[in-house]
Write a protein that binds this DNA or RNA. Structure first.
Lengths: 192, 192
DNA sequence: CGAGTTTTGTACCTAGAGTTCAAAAATAAG
DNA sequence: CTTATTTTTGAACTCTAGGTACAAAACTCG
């Protein structure tokens, strides 16, 4: 009963994540949001309550799909070093392919929003933890299978790879070509 | 001749950098800025032209002092691994010591401002390059002195250390205690 | 079809951002 | 002391953010 929604809330949240990713939280106005979702401002507030609520939902969705994508790469049946390399290359490439260098919503929000927003910080912390856990597991498996030496610490490697990933994506904000990242990625893989 | 300035522009720029670091560019209003500098809004515009101009000047100053601090640590007469370790530990520690997790103006601005601000992006890119260069030189020297193996690539190591530094600082936005970073730092040093 | 819901878009409101400006105030030169 | 020059200050102005209110529209179910 009642008038049905003209838009798919799930898709709207997805699109909102995209808009927040592109412009940042502060620079995304309710009007911009409504326009990008193709609905009126009234509908937006009716459906999502507030800009902040919508942001949190967007962030949640984004972290979910990011984790899924990460797992997709890491569950491949390839050598661990190749999988990690693909991961790093993939992130840098996709960041550089975007002429606007919008980057990753998680990284962006951790920097822009987290310090002043407890609930966002919680989601982001969980996302970072989940990412680290996936890498951690992969390194544990790789050590068991003998792919990496028994002297390697899976947790430490997971932490190093995650930090490197994030650092590279921040650096990509100001750099133009992939060449500048190649040797860094090599060094990261060599560290495994 | 003329009425003398009541405030030291250099100090004001420094204080402005601090304010931008604490709240981000978008969330720092001219009023906040004027208050934090202890001057009227009018004086602010008279002295600096615009919020954006002041931001650029702040950024410039901040990158200068950051580079000086980096050199201070790297010019120490200690083993390369110890120097780098001190660097990483120092950044993470100082980030975590701040209850608000404001972090580093360069990292923050690269994420928040660079994509939409060409001139800021230029400054930030130069800052990143300068940082990398200092590390690069240090690793070159370390290889010449035999401190690190001849098979190590100084440039690659510099890139890896820089990415790690930045990544750690982003992660520190959502984490509370130092322990979680310890093994990552170990892995980074082991990679040298 | 009509009752009852829910959605929609517009109009509206308040607060604050970012900037400009005129007038007052402080100093050095003459 | 006056004048030229510069800085300070608060008020004023415009524009937009962020959010609310509401009446009309659209749909489902009985």
């Amino acid at each position: 009963m009642g008038r049905p929604k003209k838009f798919d809330p799930d898709r709207a949240v997805e699109q909102a994540a995209e808009t927040f990713r592109a412009h940042g939280y502060a620079e995304t106005s309710p009007q911009t949001l409504a326009d990008s979702l193709g609905i009126g401002k009234g509908s937006l507030y009716n459906a999502f309550g507030s800009k902040h609520d919508l942001f949190l939902r967007s962030l949640e969705r984004y972290t979910d799909t990011s984790l899924t994508e990460l797992k997709a790469v890491m569950d491949t049946d390839r050598p661990i070093r190749e999988r990690v390399r693909n991961l790093l290359i993939g992130f840098v490439r996709s960041d550089l392919d975007d002429p606007d260098r919008c980057g990753c919503l998680v990284v962006n929000s951790a920097v822009e929003v987290a310090p002043a927003d407890k609930s966002a910080a919680l989601l982001l912390g969980r996302s970072f933890d989940a990412t680290e856990a996936v890498l951690h597991m992969a390194f544990i498996a790789a050590r068991e299978s003998g792919e990496i030496g028994p002297d390697r610490d899976p947790k430490a490697l997971a932490g190093l790879m995650q930090s490197t990933m994030i650092g590279l994506r921040v650096l990509a904000k100001t750099r133009a070509d992939f060449d500048r990242f190649e040797s860094t990625i090599d060094a990261a893989i060599t560290a495994i």
